[in-house]
């Protein structure tokens, strides 16, 4: 009897967690198809697709979608070019300042974001980076450094040295060894880092707004004004659109992220 009881409690708790996590999203998603809604009914009075055509015919919203899809991939590429060599160095070389650098990445991450953007404003004015694509890219890349160095560093460190040495013994060059042995094994970790960076860029709103608005609006910054200026249903449609790339990534990489690559990266070694 106690076993059945405790199983019942677990199922109940799981249901509460499901309601807590999924409930708000579902409640918002239904709104995207609602013509009107009377409290306290649990479903809308009537259904419509009108709000979708409102969003698709609004030029400003279309531009925001384009901007987001432009900045996120470029951010990932730039961040990878800057950070991946460093990640390899953290995993494989002992050099002066290594520990200081690792902690520096962490310290940079623990400064409150809003405070950082406020501080950056002075420098961006001086360098003419305000309202520029480069300025927004800098803000986005800054938010990805911690993912792009730590997670790949752990992935590189987990590649067994014996495999690399075996390849070298068999006559492979250093480069060949790296591209045929080290990189393929570390790839899932790098993939997780790329996804986290993509999401961080896709999600970035405060800094983009401060640096880019009103010339360069991305989907999250557009969301700020949508919430204030449009009917709830339009914001709901836009939310669904904004969530599509993320959910696609979730389905594609769920296994690797849950598989511990993310967790591994967050321990300084």
């Amino acid at each position: 009897m106690p076993r059945v009881l405790s199983r019942g409690v677990v199922v109940l708790l799981a249901a509460v967690l499901a309601l807590f996590i999924i409930g708000p999203l579902a409640w918002l998603a239904v709104r995207a198809f609602a013509a009107s809604w009377t409290y306290p009914d649990l479903l809308p009075d009537a259904w419509t697709l009108r709000w979708w055509s409102v969003v698709f015919s609004d030029r400003a919203l279309g531009v925001a979608v384009q901007n987001s899809l432009f900045f996120a991939p470029i951010t990932v590429l730039v961040s990878a070019a800057i950070c991946l060599p460093a990640a390899y160095a953290f995993a494989r070389f002992e050099f002066p300042g290594r520990r200081f650098f690792l902690i520096g990445v962490f310290a940079a991450n623990s400064f409150p974001k809003m405070g950082l953007f406020v501080s950056l404003a002075a420098l961006f004015y001086a360098l003419n980076l305000m309202n520029t694509i480069l300025g927004i890219l800098v803000v986005h890349v800054l938010g990805t450094v911690v993912f792009m160095t730590w997670i790949p560093a752990a992935a590189f460190a987990a590649v067994p040295r014996s495999l690399e040495e075996a390849a070298r013994d068999a006559g492979a060059s250093k480069l060949r060894t790296f591209f045929s042995v080290t990189l393929p094994i570390a790839l899932p970790g790098i993939l997780v880092a790329a996804i986290m960076s993509f999401l961080s860029s896709f999600d970035e709103a405060q800094g983009t707004y401060l640096v880019g608005a009103p010339d360069y609006m991305t989907m999250p910054t557009q969301m700020y004004s949508l919430v204030l200026n449009y009917p709830t249903q339009v914001a709901a449609v836009f939310s669904i659109l904004l969530a599509i790339p993320s959910v696609a990534l979730l389905l594609a990489a769920h296994k690797h992220i849950v598989g511990g690559h993310l967790a591994e990266g967050f321990q300084i070694k």
């Binding site: 967690l17 996590i21 999924i22 708000p24 918002l28 709104r31 969301m223 904004l242 990534l249 979730l250």
Partner: peptide
């Protein structure tokens, strides 16, 4: 379930939670 919020932009999450 616990991983889902990782993939939802915070702006949307806040908006959804406010409505709920």
């Amino acid at each position: 379930l616990a991983v889902v919020p990782l993939f939802i932009p915070v702006v949307i999450a806040s908006w959804a939670i406010l409505g709920f």
